[in-house]
Write a protein that binds this DNA or RNA. Structure first.
Lengths: 133, 133
DNA sequence: CCGGAAAAATTGTCTTTGCAACCAGTATAG
DNA sequence: CTATACTGGTTGCAAAGACAATTTTTCCGG
């Protein structure tokens, strides 16, 4: 139980640190871009994007501002609804993402997956999808 | 993989939120106090305590300051080494911890354990201890 | 059509945290 | 013994994110 709490607390930091060092992207930044990359037109509303990574909308505003200033994302006013903004992954952002995914995978392995000896990974995957809901 | 990243990012926040609401203690505050409660004399050096929960020493300085101002922890200069400080869990802190543990357990269950259907929990526990090293 | 409620996003403010710089105290080489 | 290196801890500073308040736009009941 202690170990679980400790892992829950420390794991995101460990992965963030690695990804920042190797790719200058935090885990959430990576996640946000990954979600965008799979959306139609690589475009999502701010609130949908925030929900997709379970972040507060205000946090997402700032995250997108950050990535926009690096040219990885572009903000476009929605034509349907003048209140809404869409975040679009730029080509540069897409390239950056493609460069980053092996790092992300490696970090997940190193800090988590490689330690799960003898566990049913199929079931774990299902459980994770369940948790993420 | 996406689900894993998302869980790693969102889980600590979810648990923190619950524990804050129910017990006014964050997960790391709880963890720090729990570690102290099991140490001889309920006492640990700052650096050992930081290591035990995988937090930076500066972060731990501030966390202890916070809990000290609530009377849950006491700071005592080490007699052996005038550089060192020890954090001691007060009786009040211990009482607070005893009141909090069911909440902590419930939050872990609700957000994580209950979703792990069909997994070998013994092995998972071993894996977690391995990761926490 | 109008006025108020709801929704989308941003911004202000506060808390938490890590890194780097900085004491103070200890250990060690010579 | 003294100068130097090292250690334990705290603080300054900056970044990230949450919540609440605000702004702009849309939706709805009458």
């Amino acid at each position: 139980m202690r170990a679980l709490s400790r892992v829950i607390y420390a794991l995101p930091r460990a992965i963030d640190t690695d990804m920042m060092r190797e790719q200058r992207l935090s885990l959430i930044e990576y996640l946000a871009m990954a979600n965008l990359s799979e959306a139609p037109d690589r475009k999502l509303r701010m609130s949908d994007l925030a929900a997709a990574v379970e972040m507060s909308l205000s946090g997402m505003t700032r995250l997108v501002t950050r990535l926009e200033s690096q040219g990885l994302i572009q903000r476009v006013k929605s034509s349907r609804d003048a209140r809404g903004s869409n975040a679009i992954l730029t080509d540069e952002g897409f390239a950056r993402l493609e460069a980053a995914w092996p790092s992300n995978l490696a970090a997940l392995r190193r800090h988590f997956l490689d330690h799960l000896t003898g566990l049913d990974l199929q079931r774990l995957a299902a459980a994770l999808r369940d948790i993420a809901t």
